[in-house]
Structures are given as structure tokens and as C-alpha cells.
């Protein structure tokens, strides 16, 4: 690079002599962009997951109290109760596994995860309160079966959400801006 070239490159900032008509250009840009995204509660996967967990915890506590009350009411249904408790434990573990998957999901921002975890803590508190409140006996096998089915549906919902997150991650990876 000779002196003339060096002189120009050293003074290149002086070539920025124009001022853009900011408001005019922005107006045009804004009209071409989609309206600002309003985050609707049920559109956010995180809230969907959180809501599902809330329902799950509620259902779980309900089941638990039924089982406890069932035991209190006598020993005639012990085998049935044991079976239901096993099913309950199985689904509880499955749910916590799914929650772990959500926690480990790289698609979610750390602050979102933190929000998610604090939400979970709140739900745990709520669960304890519910457990204390659910002392009335409504021992009915059909209801319990329905509750288990409900569990299954919630898990399915979480699985779908995780799949959606992963799918969107994949599709993001596929799009590249080629210059």
C-alpha cells in the first residue's frame, strides 16, 4: 500500500459525510416488518410446560391423598392401593425425567431455565399445601384410573413440546444466510 492509499484508509472515517433520514427510513422498514410479536401465554413453550407441570402436580397430590385415605379407610383394598401407588410412582418418575430433559434442553436460555426452576419451586410449595388440604376420602377406582390416564396425556403433552423445541432447533440450524 503506497502513501496515497494509506492516506485514504487512515482518513476513511471522513468519507462518512452523509446523514440518513432516520425517521423516514425507519417508517418504511417498520411497515415491511411483521407486527411486533406479542407473547401469548399459551404460545410460549415454557409456559405450556409449566402449566402442564402445574396440572400434573395437582393431579399427583389428588391421587396421593386418595391412596392415603384409602389406606386409612381399611385394609380391604390394600392390593389395589399398592398397585395404584406403584403406577403413581412410575408416572411421577417419568414426569421428573421429562422435567430434567426440559432443564437440559440447550434451546432454552439459562434465564428461562431459571424462571422455569423457580416456577417449579412454587409448584412444590403448592403441592404441599394441596396435600394437606386433600384429606377427604373419595376412594373410587374409576376416578383413579381416569387420573392415571390424565397423567399419560400430560406426559404426552410434554413430549410433544420437547419435540417441538427440538424440531425448531433443527430447522434453525438448516437455515443459513449465504452472502
Amino acid at each position: 500500500m503506497d502513501n496515497f492509499e494509506k492516506y485514504i484508509t487512515e482518513n476513511k472515517h471522513l468519507f462518512d459525510e452523509h446523514k440518513a433520514d432516520k425517521s423516514k427510513i425507519w417508517q418504511a422498514i417498520e411497515s415491511e416488518l411483521e407486527p411486533p410479536k406479542t407473547i401469548r401465554l399459551w404460545k410460549s413453550p415454557l409456559l405450556k410446560i409449566a402449566a402442564s407441570i402445574l396440572i400434573l402436580v395437582g393431579v399427583f397430590s389428588l391421587t396421593n391423598s386418595f391412596i392415603i385415605n384409602g389406606f386409612r379407610s381399611g385394609t380391604q383394598n390394600n392390593i389395589v392401593h399398592q398397585e395404584l401407588r406403584d403406577i403413581d410412582t412410575y408416572y411421577k418418575d417419568l414426569v421428573s425425567f421429562q422435567v430434567q430433559l426440559v432443564k437440559n434442553n440447550p434451546k432454552l436460555q439459562p434465564q428461562d431455565k431459571e424462571k422455569f426452576l423457580s416456577f417449579m419451586d412454587e409448584l412444590d410449595e403448592e403441592y404441599n399445601i394441596l396435600k394437606l388440604e386433600m384429606t377427604k376420602n373419595l376412594n373410587n377406582e374409576y376416578i383413579l384410573e381416569a387420573i392415571v390416564n390424565n397423567y399419560k396425556k400430560r406426559i404426552e403433552l410434554i413430549e410433544n413440546l420437547l419435540k417441538q423445541i427440538n424440531d425448531s432447533k433443527k430447522s434453525n440450524n438448516n437455515e443459513g444466510y449465504i452472502l
Binding site: 468519507f15 462518512d16 459525510e17 452523509h18 446523514k19 440518513a20 432516520k22 427510513i25 425507519w26 422498514i29 417498520e30 416488518l33 411483521e34 411486533p36 410479536k37
Partner: peptide, 25 residues
Amino acid sequence: KSGDRNSQYRLYELYVDAMYNISMR
């Protein structure tokens, strides 16, 4: 990226003059 219009405007404000000058040249 998440569509926050205020942030988009702030980015725009930071870069619009430089970009306009490039295009003018």
C-alpha cells in the same frame, strides 16, 4: 431476533448512518 421492536430500532439507530454512507458511495 425475538422480534423486540425497541431493540431493532436501537440497532437501526446505531448502524443506519454508516450503512447509508456505504450505499451512497
